[in-house]
Design a protein around this nucleic acid. Structure first.
Length: 902
RNA sequence: GCCGCGGUGGCGAAACUGGUAGCCGCGCUUGCUUCAGAAGCAAGUGACUUCACAGGUCAUACGGGUUCAAGUCCCGUCCGCGGCGCCA
């Protein structure tokens, strides 16, 4: 069969069918087997189907899952769809498409593409979050949280388009205007539901330490997101009012420097402070304008800091000075108390004070500048130093003073110790149709009443009954849905029409896979106990904080509800780098999506998988290009033809050096690939496989030993299986093996068969011979009578190899140099390795014994000698290496290697 | 802006705890094979220097520093990507 006849797609279809028939990827709880739960983040079913980023995610996950299967694990490797979300509703609004049908068509599309790839999913466990059987459990968990006091309602701001009378997602706001009507977007306060993730802030922080196999960067991001800080809340009495303004600070050492206080524009005191004063109007106008800006904008340090004086003064509890109270856009209500004490040792405060001519005062000076004054400063002094202008604390360093001042303020009842977090409670209300209805009923008599558990699920009305105009929340206008009876008193009442953030869906879906058909609970407890935690979770780095933090939070809540017995959901995490196209993440809006089907149709799924894996290390970001995809295809074809090639084997029972080389390479490759897969360096694992393939194809005409060659091919097939499973199955069959390659035992390497020197020697022989043949050609000699080989060992290479080993052993370069060189030389040449190497190169006679490792090489030269003798019937003389001779030899035969033919 | 990550040949990229920078692949060059093309096989391929070999010089975004030794560690700058709480 010629190569052109291989139809990789046909092979793929054949084996996909066989796998499905034999149900080899069906996962079943089995307490006798060690389990491995391998999970790729479930995708949002986009209208574009899957793109190369998905292929990367699935190829990585599948390779690992298949590897684990071959390692004898009971593997759970499921797939599902994160099928609620805004795009479906946008499609409904813009193009009048039924969001449910749209979503389900997208799922069908994605699934068909995933099936093309031949992934080892247990499709019987498929889930989708828009199924009522799924989201009823979102509602159930919500009710449990409500019981526990972990769900509550409060006012919060949302983007509001006044002309569409609707809430907008950040995504729907373009440069401050509505995506549809381009009206100016406002911030509007609405009553919304929150989940109390802050109750778990400490645990979420502390348990990061348990996640030893999470990428460090993800843990750091989560840590910063939680943003725990210890500090004090200092109370500033307002002059002339029976009122105090509390402010949070971690820098109590600067209290004597505090010369003004600023309030966030949302701060509830503002009205009261200015009521009836001449400042009232100006402040109100400022507040109104400031509230149009988003929080990110306001915190942006480059953005202009703006503020307005309230006309009121507070008293600094430490210095007793009268200090002005301002309102400023850089203060935010969400952090601390919404009020900031400002001083000369903070960049932002300093700039603000300069701008508005507010008095500043320094309390920390550099140790070397005794006469330090605020007038000398162009910007804030934020370094450490000695305390000045701070009463009894003068002379201390500021880090010494900090706890003392805090203590003193607490003792005087001007402050209390508090722990502050940047983490805020999770706002889950969305004013949209395509999400999980929040199971709450509002009754005029009974107030806010949770839906009865037995009445779950609260099912969304069919899309046909809902109008998607882009105005307001469609559910509000659907009387059939919105009208309900109060679960308590039975009178007419209104249903909550907000739906849940889709991050709720994805916060526990990994549990649902354990028992996706369970209908009495979110999941079967026993099954979850068996499968959890997820042993390997794989997904994009873009989920480093939100999804991964919410899922951890849910797991802890479910643990406290005694539903699961783990603290953490994902014991190992791999964040794959993103696949970019033209510098950006692939997305429809950018129009840079690459459909994998183009590659699959042309080359088959194995090529597509192999190629994306081979392109880069999984963690690294990747700029997509299909340049080189041919290379992966060629590799598969090469493996195929290698496995189907008729080889005439040698008859000798003795293993030749080539056989030894093959044997060693086979086992060293098994070792390497195994280690690399464990480390997820899949690109390098494929590289190692390529080396073995190249070697086998090089030797396949050389009368190799049958057993050795067959063993190599069999092992190669198994090593290839996680990466190109269809091809592996095909070859497994052709090699007359039974069963599926996919379920075979992963090959074990035998250390004693690995002989690095045999591998190196073979390479050397090969190199010399090919050089020799080239020289013959160049010289126009057909049958030489006498051949002199002048062998120049590569000292530099040897030297560095040995030096490297020695350094590793001794960890002391100097000691090593001393054993190699005399004191005089050391002085002359310094301690630069390169120079030493040069010196040694110039005078090989000086080489210390450790540098001489020629024995194996000599053996190789002997082999060359034998081969030449056999082939050319010539007499062969070997002259070992003096550098001068090497050079002479090279000069005698310019352009080519150190071989002289007589 | 803040948090995190990255910047290495013509291209995708390797490099263990600092120790020969560029594994493997693509592309390219030359040769073999072929009626021809495709495919395949063999050799070469960071840049500069040199008739050429040997050799040398310079190279991991930029500028400094630590070290016998830096892609790797430290400081600063520039550029790119992700996240920043209603995209998922």
């Amino acid at each position: 069969m010629s190569d052109a006849d291989i139809d990789f797609n046909k092979i793929a279809q054949k084996w996909q069918k066989k796998w499905a028939e034999a149900k080899i990827f069906k996962a079943k709880e089995d307490s006798k087997k060690k389990k491995a739960y391998i999970l790729a983040m479930y995708p949002y079913p986009s209208g574009e189907g899957i793109h190369m980023g998905h292929v990367r995610n699935y190829a990585i996950t599948d390779a690992y899952a298949r590897y684990k299967i071959m390692r004898g694990f009971n593997v759970l490797h499921p797939m599902g769809y994160d099928s609620f979300g805004l795009p479906a509703e946008n499609a409904a609004i813009k193009r009048h498409i039924n969001p449910k049908k749209w979503t389900e068509a997208n799922i069908a599309l994605m699934k068909s593409q995933q099936k093309l790839l031949g992934l080892s999913y247990d499709w019987d466990r498929e889930i989708a979050s828009h199924y009522p059987e799924y989201y009823r459990w979102n509602q159930w968990i919500f009710l449990k949280m409500l019981e526990k006091g972990l769900a509550y309602k409060k006012k919060a701001a949302a983007n509001w388009c006044p002309s569409c009378r609707t809430v907008l997602a950040n995504e729907q706001v373009h440069e401050g205007t509505c995506w549809r009507c381009h009206s100016q977007v406002e911030q509007k306060e609405l009553e919304q539901w929150f989940l109390k993730i802050t109750a778990y802030a400490d645990q979420l922080l502390a348990d990061l330490d348990k996640l030893g196999n999470w990428p460090e960067r993800v843990k750091i991001m989560q840590k910063n997101w939680i943003g725990k800080s210890q500090g004090v809340e200092i109370t500033f009495p307002v002059e002339g009012m029976k009122k105090t303004v509390p402010t949070f600070t971690t820098r109590a050492d600067t209290i004597f420097s505090v010369t003004f206080v600023v309030l966030a524009p949302e701060h509830p005191f503002i009205g009261e402070l200015t009521k009836g004063t001449k400042y009232e109007k100006e402040v109100a106008e400022f507040v109104k304008a400031a509230l149009h800006e988003s929080t990110i904008d306001r915190l942006n340090e480059e953005k202009e800091k703006k503020g307005v004086f309230t006309g009121r003064y507070a008293v600094n509890p430490a210095s007793k000075e009268k200090i002005p109270i301002w309102v400023a856009n850089f203060a935010v209500m969400e952090y601390g108390t919404g009020a900031v004490m400002c001083d000369a040792h903070d960049k932002r405060d300093f700039k603000f004070a300069k701008k508005y001519g507010i008095r500043l005062k320094v309390v920390i000076r550099p140790a070397d500048k005794p006469n330090f004054d605020v007038s000398q400063l162009a910007e804030a002094y934020t370094e450490d130093g000695l305390m000045i202008n701070s009463g009894q604390f003068n002379g201390l360093t500021n880090s010494e003073a900090l706890p003392k001042i805090a203590e003193w303020l607490v003792k005087n009842k001007d402050a209390k110790k508090v722990t502050n977090y940047k983490l805020r409670d999770w706002l889950i209300s969305r004013q949209r149709y395509w999400g999980t209805p929040i199971p709450i009923i509002y009754c005029k008599k009974c107030g806010t009443v949770p839906v009865h558990e037995k009445d779950l699920p609260i099912v969304l009305p069919e899309p046909e009954k809902v109008k998607f105009t882009g105005e307001g929340n469609p559910l509000d206008r659907c009387a059939e849905f919105a009208n309900a009876k109060c679960p308590k008193c039975g009178t007419a009442a209104k249903r909550e029409t907000d739906t849940m953030d889709t991050f709720v869906d994805s916060s526990w879906y990994f549990l649902r896979y354990c028992s996706n058909k369970e209908n009495k609970a979110p999941f079967d407890k026993k099954a979850a106990e068996y499968w959890l935690p997820v042993d390997q979770y794989i997904g994009g780095i873009e989920h480093a904080v939100m999804h991964l933090l919410y899922a951890r939070f849910f797991t802890k809540v479910l643990r406290d509800l005694k539903l699961v017995d783990v603290d953490e959901p994902f014991s190992n995490l791999l964040c794959q780098g993103m696949v970019l196209k033209d510098g950006y993440v692939m997305s429809k809006s950018r129009g840079n999506v690459v459909d994998p089907r183009v590659i699959i149709e042309k080359y088959g799924p194995d090529t597509a998988r192999l190629f994306i894996l081979f392109m880069a290390m999984p963690e690294k970001e990747l700029e997509w290009s299909d340049k080189g995809v041919e290379g992966s295809f060629r590799l598969l074809r090469k493996i195929y033809s290698l496995a189907t090639k008729k080889v005439s084997y040698g008859s000798s029972k003795e293993l030749s050096s080539k056989d030894k080389h093959i044997l060693s390479k086979t086992h060293s490759t098994i070792k390497k690939v195994t280690e690399l897969v464990e480390e997820f360096k899949l690109n390098a694992a494929i590289g190692a496989i390529i080396e073995l393939v190249n070697l086998l194809s090089k030797y396949s005409d050389d009368k190799v030993n049958k057993e050795v060659y067959k063993e190599a091919l069999n092992n190669l097939t198994l090593l290839v299986s996680p990466f190109a499973p269809h091809l592996a199955e095909e070859l497994w069959g052709l090699q007359k093996n039974k069963g599926f390659a996919s379920t075979q035992q992963w090959p074990e390497y035998e250390e004693e068969k690995i002989d690095k020197e045999a591998e190196a020697a073979e390479k050397l022989i090969h190199d010399i011979l090919s050089d020799f043949e080239t020289v013959l050609k160049l010289a126009g000699i057909e049958s030489p009578k006498e051949v002199t080989l002048v062998v120049a060992p590569s000292w530099k290479y040897e030297l560095f190899k040995i030096l490297k080993e020695e350094i590793k052993k001794t960890r002391d370069m100097r000691a090593l140099i001393n054993t190699c060189l005399s004191e005089k030389d050391l002085k002359t040449y310094g301690q630069d390795v390169a120079k030493i190497v040069q010196m040694i190169l110039k005078d090989p006679g000086k080489l210390p014994e450790i540098l001489i490792g020629k024995e194996k090489e000599l053996e190789a030269y002997e082999s060359v000698k034998e081969l030449i003798k056999e082939e050319y019937k010539a007499m062969v003389v070997i002259e070992t290496a003096e550098r001068s001779k090497e050079q002479k030899a090279k000069q005698a035969m310019p352009g080519k290697p150190a071989i002289i033919v007589k």
